[in-house]
Design a protein around this nucleic acid. Sequence first.
DNA 1: ACCTGAACACCGTTCAAGT
DNA 2: ACCTGAACACCGTTCAAGT
Lengths: 222, 222
Amino acid sequence: MNSSSTRSRGRPSRIDSPRTLRTALELLDEAGLDALTMRRLADAMEVRAGALYRYYATKQDLLTAMSEQMMEGVTEKVLATDGAPWHERVADFARALRTALLNHRDGARVFAGTHPTGGNVLGFSEALVGVLLDAGFPADDAARTLYALSNFTVGHTLEEQAARSGENGGADAAGLLRSAVTDGSYPHLHTALSALASTDFDRHFEYGLGLLIEGLRARRPG
Amino acid sequence: MNSSSTRSRGRPSRIDSPRTLRTALELLDEAGLDALTMRRLADAMEVRAGALYRYYATKQDLLTAMSEQMMEGVTEKVLATDGAPWHERVADFARALRTALLNHRDGARVFAGTHPTGGNVLGFSEALVGVLLDAGFPADDAARTLYALSNFTVGHTLEEQAARSGENGGADAAGLLRSAVTDGSYPHLHTALSALASTDFDRHFEYGLGLLIEGLRARRPG
DNA sequence: ACCTGAACACCGTTCAAGT
DNA sequence: ACCTGAACACCGTTCAAGT
């Protein structure tokens, strides 16, 4: 049962799936998703690109494993917030998902491009659905609430990370919006410009999350 | 002012930006985003790939124009639904955005990967913010509502189109979920399985949209 | 003015051959 | 058993040269 029994004797492999996964996440943080190629990852591990395919059959499999890894420990962290009312706990699941995605450069893009079905992601869903069932929601509503919260959070964080990575230089999204709006063609957008161009993504996220939570409170049976 | 004055005399160009855009959207629908390469697009237009760069400086510019084009007519369509209460009109904006993205294969992926700032997208935002301002919401709330609705809708449709494109064959997301959940490790997910594995995306979308709208009604001043 | 031909600097993936 | 070397079939983008 010791760890050395998992590999037969012979030349020790220079790469294995945990180290590949770790190095891939490091390269993601340093260089971003577009620069995360099998060749560059192989370079970082001092190996040829073909060798990576012994541990991950495709790049997509590696990205899926990265998504799963990004969610490690997330459920435990949010379950530690015990005793709070159900709606605060539900909100904390969404906040914890966002934080996990923000923890890695292009984290939301990696996550949105995969369909992880490992223990970290399923455990997260299990715990959130559990809180909703305990709060008295029907099973169908609990399932759909999981999807609504996840889709909002991933969609928001996708936008947030795209805005953050493009904000170096002058022609960021807020700047483009400003110049497009100040010519008078969009009076309503002009009125709302300060919030539209705001990069306080915490507030944007909390506003949308607040709407979903209030909707849940209004819909809860009993 | 006639249309021929926009080009000086000489050999008529075989390609131009409207035809490039139209052909790109056709190729997207036929083959999907991964198969939409500058070379394949050039083949479809019977031209070499390099020639495309006279009309779109980068592939990203072309994808942005495609996003903008996907939103053509959307605002007009939803504004035709006049007289309805503000919350129904707001919901219709989200529904119209989803429909526009669903109208093209991988539409949500194209849209999520760009930041269009043309008249179709800005006009959509302008009209939605206008309805919210008319309903009495403060400008900041109107802006953040636009973002919450857009991010939810794009996030949802990203998932929906990923599920629909992967559902041919056996190992779709619902099947993977079923097999992962039926071993007893996830009792809550087991309870909610029928809705979790459902591919009735209209209902999933309407549920999440309903939460956001109910949240808005609860928050509206006055 | 508009497009071709050809190149540059890459990709993901496969697989016989080496050690 | 594990990795290399080399190839296959591609990418986005640039640009001198042709017409």
